[in-house]
Design a protein around this nucleic acid. Structure first.
Lengths: 352, 352
DNA sequence: CTGTTAGCGCATTCAC
DNA sequence: GTGAATGCGCTAACAG
């Protein structure tokens, strides 16, 4: 009888996909050894490891993720959640995370929030209950949404927050040096002889915008300029708001350079300037922030600051995949000044 | 002994997440009945259905996708594969698919191909072997990549191809009325009095571009115009190529309107025209295609043609989720002319 | 270091 | 219509 049972197990021929059992048989080891090799656990004799790997290769075996996750360890799925991100930012965020996931055999699932139609996040909560994410990358600006963080931490899901506004213990923070980038922009303008500036900030609460402003102003201060040399108005990161802000700015004061908190608003500035017959950069310098495609779709192409979004999201994904110490971890990535044709030597001040 | 065993099963208290067993107990039915209700199978008495649903709700039960897929049916995961898609197109494609997936309790995983670094698609093949996609949405232009289709069909994975160039039996095709959109554009221009046109096509093999060209020309023909009234040059969908194409066009012939196969190239045209002091639309009308954000980031905003990308990808996802008849299915979605300020009444011809 | 065994949570034959 | 039993492919204790 006992032999029969054993036989039964042995008889499990490679019906469809090969299973871990087939591999074990082919390699002449037990299933647990195969499992250990698959998961890269220590304490396996090198010879066995090799035998198993050969068996895996020859059989073309690939572990079934569903079966792997059933016993309750990982799901090999990491999520990326965001809300009305700019397509450009979204694409780069995904690419970085996707490559990291692929390299580790993970899948990246995307989840778009809709804070308007679903303010209570019930849909998101449902998804969270259904899907068993091994970790979640939270993009700005939802990285600072308390309810989202609560939902996630309530379920004990690890998260990596991109460019968050505050610290949340136990979560991973990934940010970039917005201040440094803004400072580099300031220095660039200073070197071109500009001493009076128009600035278009983002929405009041926006962390990135605030950092960009403070970075710019600090740099100015360091060079001995008074804070009053920059006239500030706010926009909402859209092209239209950039246009309006530009009009407002032109009436408020005199300056030779306008710096917007992102490229889209800078594009709006360009449109207004163009319509008014103010030549860029001869009569006015303009810069953006982000180095999005927009920067090169307008004329003249924008001087701007690039942030390494892909690297950041890849780092976020890898943190989640590594699943190391529960402790938080902060990574700050460098930004880079990109000089194009929208900035030039200071001319005579324009405006009131 | 038997009683003991039974007891053991009964004793499975709701340790962590509630399971189907807990639901069965709470509803006073068997697990298979619960399973039937969950999967919406017929032949279950209404009273039971209700009881089960109440139990599910009160316990906050959500089926474990891993456990569901282990027995070999679906994985509840559908993939979206693409290659260097424009961020705008990508974002919309995803949003549509994502919403459809969410509504059905599916997850959408994104997979970016890299035909340059991985021309053999080995990485993709590996992912395909590992992940068990219930279906895959293939975006243009990879929807026409033979190797991809082969890999997919070899594994018996259902696919929904977006805007494909050819038919592949057994796959779902989703396209939009590019020709109709181009025809609408032509009619619009004709009504404004234009009779000579400059056209910037996309890369020679590109299906969408070809359709747009033919749609435009047919409309012209219908209005009694000779094909020779349109001067054509090719671009590669980028801003720069739009600029070059515009320069080439201006030297080749005379016309009062330029239509580009996408918005980015049209933006390039605008830049060149602006630099040359040619006023749009007074001296030259310009139109794009896609109604991407670019269309509203330039000055003047572009008259263009919108395609319902989100609806298309949602339809693709739903086809995959419905998993109905193996037969192919073709859906053609309407396009829409969007008139903005880059087109106006025909002026005196400009150019050679 | 390595093999044995017992489930993970659910869909699915089958009987009834 | 409904329930009981079997196993999906794998990991995770345990023994050894």
């Amino acid at each position: 009888m006992i032999v029969q049972l054993a036989d039964c197990t042995q008889r499990r021929v490679s019906r469809g996909k090969p299973t871990i059992i087939d591999v074990a048989k082919a390699a002449g080891v037990s299933v647990s050894t195969v499992s250990r090799v698959i998961n890269g656990e220590a304490h396996v004799r090198p010879a066995r490891i090799e035998a198993v790997q050969r068996a895996i290769a020859s059989l073309g075996f690939t572990p079934d993720p569903a079966a792997r996750s059933l016993p309750g360890s990982r799901s090999f799925i990491i999520g990326a959640i965001f809300e009305k991100l700019s397509p450009f930012y979204l694409a780069h965020l995904q690419l970085g995370a996707m490559e990291a996931c692929r390299a580790a055999g993970y899948l990246l699932v995307v989840e778009q929030l809709d804070l308007v139609r679903d303010p209570d996040l019930t849909a998101f909560a449902r998804t969270l209950a259904t899907a068993r994410f091994d970790g979640v990358i939270v993009a700005p600006p939802v990285a600072d949404h308390p309810k989202i963080i609560d939902l996630l931490s309530a379920r004990g899901i690890r998260m990596a927050r991109i460019a968050p506004g505050n610290e949340v213990p136990g979560t991973c923070h990934i940010e970039c040096d917005d201040e440094g980038g803004a400072a580099a922009l300031a220095k660039h303008l200073l070197e071109l002889g500009h001493v009076r500036f128009g600035m278009i900030a983002g929405p009041p609460g926006n962390v990135a915008s605030v950092r960009r402003q403070s970075g710019f102003q600090s740099a100015l201060r360091e060079h001995g300029l008074d804070p009053s040399c920059v006239e500030t108005v706010v926009g909402d990161f859209t092209f239209e708001s950039g246009m309006q802000a530009c009009e407002a700015l032109l009436e408020k004061g005199s300056f030779t350079a306008i710096v917007a908190a992102n490229d889209d608003m800078a594009a709006g500035v360009l449109a207004v300037l163009h319509r008014r017959g103010i030549v860029v950069p001869d009569q006015m310098s303009v810069c953006g922030f982000d180095d999005s495609p927009t920067a090169q779709l307008v004329w003249p192409p924008l001087t701007t600051v690039r942030q390494p979004i892909m690297e950041m999201s890849a780092a976020a994904a890898n943190f989640l995949i590594r699943r190391d110490t529960e402790g938080h971890e902060i990574g700050v990535f460098p930004t880079e000044l990109v000089v194009r044709n929208s900035t030039g030597p200071a001319a005579a001040p324009k405006g009131a």
